[in-house]
Structures are given as structure tokens and as C-alpha cells.
Design a protein around this nucleic acid. Structure first.
Lengths: 164, 164
DNA sequence: GTAAGTGCAAAGTGTTTGCATTTCC
DNA sequence: GGAAATGCAAACACTTTGCACTTAC
């Protein structure tokens, strides 16, 4: 009920290459860097995050190129744009058979977790039907909470502590 | 489990007046018009919607005043800002004892319905706990669907048809 | 009279676009 | 060589802010 298999960067990279070929687009150094860094990431990167990483390898890349490349990735189903209310769009890596999932965001450390819950989805469909026979086409569920440490649990775990 | 009592414009108006008095703000014609039109609305208005209505009564009012007045209303708990992904912030009227609620948005007619579902809320808490002992502080659930008419149901109902 | 509010225009965001120049095939 | 991509700056849409002028108390 929770979690899903992580996307495979190599396979997605091939998918992108094929998309580029099929649409007669060109393979450029900038795109290579952007796509690889994006696929290597844990997802949920903002344009700014990504551009910062990109510029470490290729300093002259501009915002527009990153926006355009993410658009491309979104068009071919490798990336998905998300809004978590902090003003900027974040992009997540979409694995191939990746089912719909929702998000849990820690309000203190900023960590974003993904989850699936079939029971909730089912209740949503029922709810929509009960509200007047509506048929759902999509939904957005975001949980904002505190990780145990932030919530004040003694010796509480904070995922952020590990990454440093 | 669904629906809630509608907010009472008169009472909220008094609440606003009191807020203004307590904070030693001033009562102005512009604010009167904006607040009354907002409270009279069904909520979920964008600044632009509201300004358009306001200008019918008081043509010289500017965007800034509407933004500032909505900020005021938000500060005193009468309005709440919402983002439904169409780029602009919408404000909803918050009745006094108004419980948290979620939204169902019709992707074809734009109607926004509100609902509550305790079972879903409960499952969310469980989910957060299971994901690593997170404590939820808030959440956002938006259902996007089609009203029966849009979904192609014969003689299907579309709430928008009534308002014209 | 003075602090608060208004309207306007300017400045800020995050994002997109137009265009001359560069790059890939 | 020519289409496609890049980088820059300008344009965008929405929102906020600075400031001279007006208004409420």
C-alpha cells in the first residue's frame, strides 16, 4: 500500500533518447547534462535547484534551457510538474509503470515522501459520486506534517539528518 | 459527512468590524464594498472576479486595495486563500465554526464544491504515522472530476446551467 | 492634525518567448 | 546548409511595495 519501485535512470535515459530521435530533435551537451542530473536526482527538484547543479558542470546554461528541457521531459512522460505551494514548480521523475501517488511533506525539514493508498482513492471516488454523480479524472492529495524529530519525539528521527 | 452550514455574512461582517476597531484601523468606503461583495459571494473568487464586481459599484478601486483588503480578511480568519492550479489565488469565505474541508472541482464547468470526509482524514493520519511516525499538521485534497453532464450522462446535471 | 488608507505605477516573482547566434546532423 | 537549440533579454501574469495624496477619526 505504500511506496513503489524506484525509477530506472538508464531506462528513462534511453526513453528520452528515443523521443529525441523520433521527433527529430537534436542531442546537445546541455540536454545531456540536464537530463542526467534530473534523472539521477530523487525528484521534486525546482528549476533553480536543477540549474544550480547543472551550472557546476556547465556554467553557461541559462534558465530557459532548463525550462525547455523539463518541458520536453514532461511531454514524453519522464517528468511530472508538481506544485507544493511554495511558489515554484517542482518536477518529479516518473518511472515507467509508475502508478499515481500522493505526497507527504515535512513542514520543518522539507522532506517529500511519496505514497499510495488505495482505500483513500476508493473513498474519493465514492465521495465524488455522492456529491452529485461526478466522475473523477484526477486528484491531488498533499499531507503536511512533522517528522518525529520536529514533532518533539525523544530521539525522534529526522530524515534530513542522514543526508548531511 | 458531507457539506457544512453556510457562513453568515452578517455575523462575519460584524467580526470584521470588530477586528478593524480593535486594531485601530479605519473604516473606508472601499473596504465596505469589497468586504460586502466578498461575503455575499459563494467564495472561491479570484482577485480579478472580485475587483470586477467592486468596480461596478466603485469604479476607481485598484488592485492593490483588493489585495490588501483580502489580506486583512485572511488575517482575521474570515477568508482563506486557495490555489487550484489555474495560476491565480482564490479566496473562500470561512464561516465561524467552519471545519476543515476539501474541494471537488469540475474540470469542464469550473464549479467548486466543498466536502468533508472523516474517514479519509483518519486514513491520512494513519498513513502519515505509517510512513515514519509523522504527525500531520494540515493537508490538501482536491478532486478534479466531471459533472454528470460533462461526463456524458444522458440528461446529466450540470450545476452551471442553473446559474445562467 | 495625524495616522491609516488609497491609487497609481514601479518593482518583484516565477515562467515563457522572440531573436540573433551557435550547434548538430 | 538548414533546421533546431541556446543564451540572453524582454515580455508575461500575478502579486507586492513605495510613495504622494486623500480620508477617517
Amino acid at each position: 500500500m505504500t511506496g513503489h519501485s524506484p525509477p530506472d535512470p538508464k531506462h528513462l535515459r534511453l526513453k528520452f533518447d528515443e523521443y529525441v530521435r523520433r521527433h527529430q530533435l537534436k542531442s546537445t551537451h546541455q540536454r545531456d547534462v540536464i537530463v542526467d542530473l534530473f534523472l539521477k536526482s530523487t525528484g521534486h527538484m525546482s528549476i533553480e535547484d536543477l540549474l544550480a547543479k547543472v551550472r557546476k558542470k556547465s556554467p553557461k546554461v541559462g534558465y530557459a534551457t532548463v525550462y525547455r528541457t523539463l518541458k520536453l521531459l514532461t511531454d514524453c512522460g519522464i517528468a511530472a510538474a508538481r506544485q507544493f505551494g511554495d511558489g515554484q514548480t517542482r518536477f518529479e521523475v516518473m518511472g515507467d509503470g509508475q502508478a499515481h501517488h500522493d505526497h507527504l511533506i515535512c513542514v520543518s525539514c522539507g522532506l517529500i515522501l511519496e505514497f499510495e493508498n488505495d482505500t483513500i482513492e476508493q473513498l474519493q471516488d465514492e465521495m465524488a459520486d455522492r456529491l452529485g454523480g461526478f466522475k473523477l479524472v484526477r486528484h491531488k492529495l498533499e499531507l503536511y506534517g512533522q517528522c518525529p524529530k520536529a514533532a518533539g519525539v525523544k530521539n525522534g528521527y529526522c530524515p534530513k539528518d542522514e543526508s548531511s
